[in-house]
Design a protein around this nucleic acid. Structure first.
Length: 809
RNA sequence: GCGGGUAUGGCGGAAUUGGCAGACGCGCAGGAUUUAGGUUCCUGUGGAGCGAUCCGUGUGGGUUCGACCCCCACUACCCGUACCA
């Protein structure tokens, strides 16, 4: 009878080691340590009712590998986890099922926790944070108060994005193609009084400080584009009524070509001019039409310019004194620049379209393009030369801009100006499940911040979580809660009933991990000094212009008021690609192609899932899930298991495996650093193939288990124990490799004749070029192609190939 | 339109950054084990050709002894953004 080998029983091995790690607290970060610190961060999940999606394990496993590797390299590692638990889906579920969102949240967090533990991540579970915990949101509210006290939070009435279905204000970032990002309903403009955060005050620093951090380039580019800095000039035009009309332009050089002006429909001067406008009815009608258009309609109609010419008032071009007409049109945005433009149809596509439709004059002031009556000439470089522009004539565009800017400054009618696309952050939500904004309205004293000793301002219990029909938060119906006393005069006052957006809690959570149970501060100074900044933060590209930008803003503010020690929160930022369903489509319930990690773990084990999700392809690219390919990773682990059981008991390395082992140690280390997890795994698969061919020793296996353990930690712990290893494999040092041992004694080199591969030769590793050429020429297959030819030149790439260039004699 | 990215076997993807294209895995084919299926283990697997060989990295040019890689001109798809003056 053959002895039946122990089967690779992942279902019992995995929980066993998860329990042992937890009991031994192997992943707990030390608050003080002689070791260098490493803070690795993943974006904490939103605990949805659906549980973990297979998209989650990709970044989580990647950072788990990185942090496990860092621990083996001797770092004191902080790798925390938490839950970003405020937000609409939970609230919507609560509305539908009449359960308190806090209860739903608790259940969902429990389920997420179970799933995350099931995958064997080395999180420090003693530092879990939950943004809906009053001990946490106390500090979210505290930060808001500091922003308010420093003039960075203000309330204003402004047109906001209003979701017609959620009955809620949305940030610009939450409006996707004119519809609500969450529910897909049309978004319209609505005037509402909103709390705003002045992120625009940090626009320049948010651009400049990107130079000091190690973010992948596309993240930097996307943030810069989103902030949208443009330089130009502000110019004041006089209206015939005597009013000043200030415009922003990036092309002050084209001022002589400004043949009309356009104001946004919301521009304040229109109201002022009402008495003198002969066509005020038409103007009012246009304003109304523009306001009621949804964003969707605006963008759909953006090819066709509309507008109304103001009858009764004109503007004067300050450079030549010419009177020019003024229009209103919705192609000029109230929220950018000054809400008014000078139109230069000869050199701007939009102005050109408008001018053609409304019959405005088109005057060329930059030559070098085609006929400006047929198309606008918009080149901003040195290809164009100024004409019809008096003192600017003969200059290039680049030369003309400083000249005209200086001229405007001297005349007192303009100055250089920088503008940003970035707008202030709309911070109010008319929703229940968010942090209450700690502000009180007093008819006598105005808005008053809640005294800090009254924090946290708790969310009260309400009967219904639905917003009111007029768009007020459900909190507005809680009379007992709303009515309070003014912190300033003690008189009757009302609380703010809006709550904060979901982005609030996630804007600083990484700081709380450093000192999660502190009740005196968001984190102690010692903890902040020790752990800041986050060394490596991996997250999705979809958060580049939202969470990532918001949290950089908050962090810079906290830096300015002396709370945090670094200007930037994150030293390094990387990003992963999406996991798509089979067929290459986004995974979604409606498509029925969602893969549940629970099922994969049940069928193949967590180690196989971890390995597969890292092997699936380039970490930064989107990748398609394949049930079949998962099996390949399971087979690999089976082979590892079988080899460990059958290996030679020698603690030494098998000579035949020596070079492969050293090479793989180096390759896996380099690949983890470069997030090339797929090729790291491929290299270990190749090594295992070599073990099968060459045979392997216990020493070989233990080295393999050490470098495989960040990827597939459970099976490696089990086999490590089985082979008599000391302690946990995850606590071992990363094996050293010997550069000299990574090369074999002999190398195979390709021989090319005139650039075509004709043979392969084996030469000693250090062979010099002459010897290599001689060996190549001696090869019979090569001689077939060199017979009767003379050698003109030979190129030797050591260890790779030799190319013989020959010509007929 | 603008910004970013991608294009390599039947499929997912490699290629030391200018040096043997297709590593590794899936799938497929043949064989061994098995009563059978599954598992496991060999062997083969870019295309054409009996063959020596020839052709092959989206398209068309170029540089080079040598190009998936660099340059020029295109095409297709994906992501972001959208009248930002």
């Amino acid at each position: 009878m053959e002895v039946c080998a122990l089967k690779y029983d992942f279902a019992s091995i995995e929980p066993k080691w998860q329990k042992k790690w937890e009991e031994a607290k192997v992943f707990a970060a030390a608050d003080k340590s002689d070791k260098p610190k490493f803070y690795g961060l993943i974006e904490f999940p939103y605990p949805s009712g659906q549980g973990l999606h297979v998209g989650h394990p990709r970044p989580f496993t990647a950072m788990d590998i990185v942090t496990r590797k860092r621990r083996m390299d001797g770092y004191n590692v902080l790798f925390p986890i938490g839950f970003d638990a405020f937000g609409l889906p939970t609230e919507n579920y609560a509305i539908k099922n009449h359960v308190h969102p806090a209860i739903v949240t608790k259940q969902n967090i429990a389920n997420f926790t179970r799933q995350l533990k099931m995958l064997g991540y080395g999180f420090d579970w003693d530092r879990v944070v939950d943004t809906t915990d009053p001990d946490y949101y106390k500090w979210t509210q505290w930060i808001f108060l500091q922003l308010y006290k420093h003039g960075l939070a203000y309330k204003t009435t402004m047109p906001v994005n209003w979701c017609t279905s959620c009955k809620c204000v949305l940030a610009n970032e939450e409006v996707v193609e004119g519809v609500c990002e969450r529910c897909g309903s049309p978004v319209i403009r609505k005037e509402k009084s909103q709390w705003m955060l002045k992120i625009t005050a940090y626009a320049q620093r948010l651009i400049d400080d990107l130079d000091d951090v190690d973010f992948i380039e596309r993240v930097k580019i996307q943030q810069r584009n989103w902030i949208g800095r443009s330089t130009g000039a502000e110019v004041t035009f006089k209206a015939t009524t005597g009013d000043d009309i200030v415009v922003f332009t990036t092309r002050p050089d084209t001022l002589f070509g400004a043949t009309y002006m356009v104001l946004s429909p919301e521009h304040a001067l229109i109201k002022k001019w009402a008495p003198v406008l002969k066509n005020m009815d038409e103007v009012t009608a246009y304003q109304k039409a523009a306001a009621s258009k949804s964003d969707l309609e605006r963008t759909e109609l953006n090819k066709d310019k509309t507008g109304v010419c103001l009858d009764g008032v004109k503007a004067v071009n300050p450079v030549n004194g010419r009177e020019i007409p003024i229009f209103i049109s919705d192609y000029v945005l109230a929220t950018y620049g000054t809400g008014a433009i000078m139109a230069v149809p000869a050199h701007d596509d939009r102005d050109w379209d408008f001018a053609k439709k409304f019959g405005c004059e088109i005057i060329e002031v930059v030559s070098g393009g085609e006929d400006v009556q047929k198309a606008a000439f918009t080149a901003k470089d040195d290809t164009g030369i100024l004409v019809n522009s008096e003192f600017l004539n003969g200059l290039t565009v680049k030369q003309a801009i400083p000249v005209i800017t200086k001229w405007l400054e001297e005349k007192g009618i303009g100055r250089a100006q920088v503008n940003y696309k970035l707008r202030d952050w709309v911070f109010s939500r008319q929703r229940y499940w968010g942090e209450p904004i700690p502000m009180v309205w007093c008819d006598k004293c105005g808005w008053q911040p809640l005294p800090e000793d009254q924090l946290p301002l708790l969310l009260p219990e309400v009967e219904s979580y639905e917003p009111t029909d007029d768009g007020e938060s459900p909190l507005s119906k809680m009379t007992d809660w709303v009515n309070t006393t003014c912190p300033c005069c003690g008189g009757p006052a009302r609380r703010e009933t809006d709550t904060m957006p979901q982005w609030a809690g996630s804007s600083w959570y990484f700081l709380r991990y450093m000192d999660p149970r502190n009740d005196k501060a968001l984190a102690s100074k010692e903890a902040l000094d020790y752990w800041s900044p986050v060394d490596w933060y991996n997250g999705g590209m979809e958060h580049t212009t939202l969470h990532l930008l918001y949290s950089r803003f908050w962090h810079k503010f906290l830096y300015d008021i002396g709370v945090v020690p670094t200007k930037e929160p994150y030293q390094k930022r990387t990003s992963h690609g999406m996991i798509l369903g089979e067929g290459g489509e986004k995974m979604s319930k409606s498509r029925g192609n969602v893969v549940n990690p629970d099922d994969v773990v049940k069928n193949y084990g967590a180690d196989t899932l971890r390995l597969y999700i890292m092997f699936i392809g380039d970490f930064e690219q989107a990748a398609v899930w394949s049930d079949n390919a998962v099996k390949g990773c399971k087979r690999f682990l089976d082979k590892v298991w079988n080899l460990a059981e059958s290996c030679d008991p020698s603690p030494e390395h098998t000579p035949a495996n020596e070079a492969g082992l050293h090479r793989t140690i180096r390759k896996v280390a380099d690949d983890i650093e470069g997030m090339k997890f797929n090729t790291a795994i491929a290299a270990m698969m190749t090594l295992v193939g070599d073990f099968q061919k060459n045979g392997c020793s216990r020493g070989d296996m233990k080295t393999l288990l050490t470098i495989l353990s960040p990827f597939a930690p459970h099976i490696c712990e089990e086999l490590w124990e089985m082979l008599g290893g000391e302690g946990f494999v995850c606590n071992q040092s990363w094996p050293a490799y010997d550069e000299s041992k990574t090369v074999a004694d002999t190398v195979q080199m390709a021989v090319q004749v005139n650039g075509k591969v004709r043979a392969n030769i084996v030469v000693p590793a250090g062979a010099d070029n002459d010897a290599v050429v001689a060996a190549a020429q001696a090869d019979p297959k090569v001689q077939k192609f060199t017979a009767g030819m003379s050698l003109v030149k030979s190129i030797v790439v050591p260890g790779r190939l030799v190319n013989l260039i020959v010509r007929p004699q």
